[in-house]
Amino acid sequence: HNGKLCKLKGIAPLQLGKCNITGWLLGNPECDSLLPARSWSYIVETPNSENGACYPGDLIDYEELREQLSSVSSLERFEIFPKESSWPNHTFNGVTVSCSHRGKSSFYRNLLWLTKKGDSYPKLTNSYVNNKGKEVLVLWGVHHPSSSDEQQSLYSNGNAYVSVASSNYNRRFTPEIAARPKVRDQHGRMNYYWTLLEPGDTIIFEATGNLIAPWYAFALSRGFESGIITSNASMHECNTKCQTPQGAINSNLPFQNIHPVTIGECPKYVRSTKLRMVTGLRNIPSIQYRGLFGAIAGFIEGGWTGMIDGWYGYHHQNEQGSGYAADQKSTQNAINGITNKVNSVIEKMNTQFTAVGKEFNNLEKRMENLNKKVDDGFLDIWTYNAELLVLLENERTLDFHDLNVKNLYEKVKSQLKNNAKEIGNGCFEFYHKCDNECMESVRNGTYDYPKYSEESKLNREKIDGVKLESMGVYQILAIYSTVASSLVLLVSLGAISFWMCSNGSLQCRICI
């Protein structure tokens, strides 16, 4: 991952900044910058967002509201009850120091605090018919004063009620008058409520006091790749198909172990950190130390980045220098085999997901714990399936590479015959000098055995068991695999060879 928040398929997220979902939807004055928000790819909250409900109280069923919003990608904020005409018999300019803005008392931008007009609070009834052709999110509140005197001074009615009804919602609220500790300079409380109004449905408000009335509502448009994440990451000019709280993932790998919460087309989250597919040879310690064997393909974004291909070729060293050249036929066979294998694994496992966190309130801790156990169970199954699949494929890959290298080895052996000696570690020792032209003939299969047989015969008789390297004779190393990324691999195959001279070296080696 890149540690950044990015656009998702070209669409920017909605960053709530210092506000949370509650503050944004109710219209906390400190969240005025969010009022123009219309569309987004996903919503970003920060872990310690401080601006929620400015007048103390709870947004009821907040967790369910977050779940609903996680599939919303755009909205239209509109005046559901026009301020100047909807409440002619009531005062609608209630403000509070708890919702101060720029040093002055204020109130929510989407709600109206209705109080008595003169000395009376006549029963009010108002309704709205949803003609938007889509779901409408309606929010309101109920004020709970701290004393009967406060109730009387604001609403005149000691036994007030609030009723809200639609086809799918029907509740009646009565204020709970009680002494409470002071929070944000208030002994009173406000509880906030919401409902989704279906197209064509009607919502009716009736009250004799204590109503925090809707002013603006939201017509919602769903987008199934949307979601809500909690993150401290910063926004950058970048684009992605998959976003996590820790950063964007741009990967076609089937798995990731970065974060379980994802938005967009994302690899499946697994616990494993070692889900690797081999593309090189079986481990040979001396070669492995030099980083030549054991190439791997990573299938977990965050564990290993991208696929690494092994390729086969020849390396030689003689009086004229040293050089490398790919054996294109065996390399292409290996590439085709690995590509098919990788595609097979991805096809089997690479279903892209959006995974969002589930919200539970403080009273639902047991449910949250149960949900976590269920999620953990599914996660263990996914991890096991992934590891088992790759384990089985790896064994076949190792066998496949062994065969490829063996074929190259036999190709060289059949040409050199007794003009060189096998020394048991995949290397041959020449009994004759071999210049670049000679080396090329070994690589392309045109090695002239009779041409060098007499010199080889004489050297075999002279050496008589002495280690060949100390006599200045020449080696050919018969097994060799270097490691390159897919891009470098293609470039390498396009070149005939490249040279690395070893000044004054008397050794001649050709490596497979």
Score class of each variant (00 low, 15 high):
Ser234Trp: 01
Met235Asp: 00
Met235Gly: 05
His236Ala: 13
Cys238Leu: 05
Lys241Leu: 12
Pro245Thr: 08
Gln246His: 04
Ser251Ala: 15
Ser251Arg: 03
Leu253Thr: 06
Leu253Cys: 14
Pro254Leu: 10
Phe255His: 04
Gln256Leu: 02
Pro260Val: 04
Lys268Val: 12
Lys268Asp: 04
Arg271Cys: 02
Thr273Met: 15
Leu275Val: 06
Arg276Val: 12
Val278His: 02
Thr279Ala: 05
Thr279Lys: 07
Arg282Tyr: 06
Asn283Pro: 06
Arg290Pro: 05
Gly291Pro: 01
Ile296Val: 15
Gly298Met: 07
Ile300Cys: 04
Gly302Tyr: 08
Met307Gly: 01
Gly310Tyr: 11
Tyr312Pro: 01
His316Ile: 13
Ser322Ile: 06
Asp327Leu: 03
Gln328Phe: 05
Ser330Gln: 08
Gly337Thr: 10
Asn340Lys: 08
Val345Glu: 05
Ile346Lys: 02
Glu347Cys: 03
Lys348Gly: 03
Val356Tyr: 11
Glu368Tyr: 03
Asn369Pro: 02
Asp375Ala: 08
Asp376Ala: 10
Asp380Pro: 02
Ala386Arg: 01
Glu387Lys: 07
Val390Cys: 10
Leu392Gly: 01
Arg396Trp: 15
Glu410Trp: 07
Lys411Pro: 07
Asn418Asp: 13
Asn418Val: 13
Ala420Thr: 03
Tyr431Lys: 00
His432Ser: 06
Cys438Ser: 03
Arg443His: 03
Asn444Trp: 02
Asn444Glu: 13
Asp448Lys: 13
Ser453Trp: 12
Glu454Cys: 13
Glu455Gly: 07
Ser456Ala: 15
Lys457Val: 14
Leu458His: 09
Asn459Arg: 14
Asn459Lys: 12
Glu461Met: 07
Leu468Lys: 01
Ser470His: 14
Met471Trp: 10
Tyr474Asn: 05
Gln475Ser: 12
Ile476Asn: 10
Ile476Ala: 09
Ile479Val: 11
Tyr480Met: 09
Ala484Gly: 07
Leu487Thr: 13
Ser492Met: 02
Trp499Gln: 12
Trp499Pro: 00
Met500Ala: 14
Cys501His: 01
Ser505His: 06
Ser505Val: 12
Gln507Asn: 06
Ile512Ser: 04
